[in-house]
Structures are given as structure tokens and as C-alpha cells.
Amino acid sequence: MSHHIVEARDLHFTYPDGTQVLRGITFRITHGESVAIVGANGAGKSTLLLHLNGYLRPVSGELRVGDSPLTRENLRMVRRAVGLVFQDPDDQLFMPTVFDDVAFGPLNLGLPPEEVTKKVEAALQVVGALHLKDRPPYRLSGGEKRAVAIATVLSMSPDILVMDEPTSNLDPRARRTLIELLKGFQHTKIIATHDLDMVMDLCRRTLVIREGRIIADGPTERIMRDGQLLASSNLEIPLGLRGCPVCGEGTG
């Protein structure tokens, strides 16, 4: 059974205080795809991400991960299969040291200590943070925190990586390093972001969300050139697609 497929069917979600956030979201993301979710602040991106691993339950509609709908019984499996990386690494890195943090998930899965150590070291190796193993999280730079936050999820061997604003608050070099790292991953990737230049680099497909609905779903190339569509979601055509203001060349 493949867990790499995520499918949402008419998801609706309303917070207890009555705020309606999702108003019918439908999409299907298949094995190995890399998909961006873009939209204005408050469009419902983060709320949608929290549905993908069952943290939030839709008021109505259905979410399927792999071949089966999400239920109370397979929740545990889904939590492992869908690795969610939060926007603020300080929320994700809550344990005393980097090692403890990356080991948190595997230990909760009930793996034996030797295997936990192996998984932790492998995950840290992948993100290039093995040397930070014994550091407390508050002693890391922004880029290091982000890398470790990703490792905390990788150590559970997820099939799908879900990320909320992975490049926010990073300096250009740390951002570049992160993009290159993500490019190397074979996982199915779902990334919510405002960083459209990164989307151009990483994602073949883009979903645009506005007021809890999907208003566009298609190849990134096409959506990023649709200035009107982007503007309606408080977005701008990425710099990489605009004509060069100095020499006038470019595809804008």
C-alpha cells in the first residue's frame, strides 16, 4: 500500500469561535509530486496543512491518505506517514537538545534505542546538521533551526513532507541551502508559502487558495505568469519571471 497519495474531498472547517476557514477544498496529490499552496495571509493555508495529518478534523468532507480515508484507527499511521514541518522552528524544537528532539518521534513510535540512534543520525546527516547533535535548540542559527526541524520529521521516515513557510526568516544563503536540500528529497512534497521564487525552483504544480476555496490548480509555470490571478490573492509575479529592469531582457 502506498501512503504517498493525499486526496481531499470537499473539506470544510470552522473554528469553535465560528470563523469559517475552509469552504470546500478538493484536490488530489499523487506519488512524488511537489506541490505549492499559495494564497494571501489568512486564506486558510496553515489550517489546511493541519488537516493533512489529521491534527484537525474537517467539519465535513473527507481526507484520504494512501488508499484509505483517515479514521481514528489509522491516525497513528497517518501521523508517521505525513511529516509536518511548522513555520516557527521554535515551536517544533521543544526538547533539551537537538538529538532529543530528533529522537522524539521515533521514541514515540516505540522503536528500540539502537534503531532510534541510527535514525536520528541518518536524519541529521541528510540535513547536514549531525555536528549540532548535542546543542540545545536555542543555540542554533535560523538556518540551522530550520534544518533540524526538518530532521525531526525525517527521522520518522515519512512518505509525505508538508511544510509551512519553510523559507521565511532565512537569509539568502540559508534559503538557497534549504531549497537545494529540498530538491534532493524523493518524498511527495506539499509546501505552503509566499516565496514564489522558491515555488518556481521546487514545485511543478501550484494550488491557489482564496477565502477557503481553491481558485486555481495547475502547472506552476502557467499560474506564476497570471498576474491578475496572483494579484487577486495579494501575490505578485515572481522576480525570476519579470523582465530585467536594467537591460530590458527577460520573459515578462
Binding site: L50, N53, Y55, R76, R79, R80, G83, L84, F86, D88, D91, Q92, F94, M95, P96, D100, A103, F104, G105, L107, N108, L109, P113, V116, T117, T152, V153, M156
Partner: peptide, 18 residues
């Protein structure tokens, strides 16, 4: 948010440290 981050990584009420 921290609680949700913990939940997403299999937190079930007890914190395990190796």
C-alpha cells in the same frame, strides 16, 4: 502550536527521553 507539533510526532501524553 507546540502541542500540535508534539502531537504530529506521535506524542501520547508521556515524553520519552533517551
Amino acid at each position: 502550536r507546540i502541542h500540535s507539533a508534539m502531537w504530529c510526532r506521535g506524542f501520547d501524553g508521556s515524553v520519552r527521553v533517551m
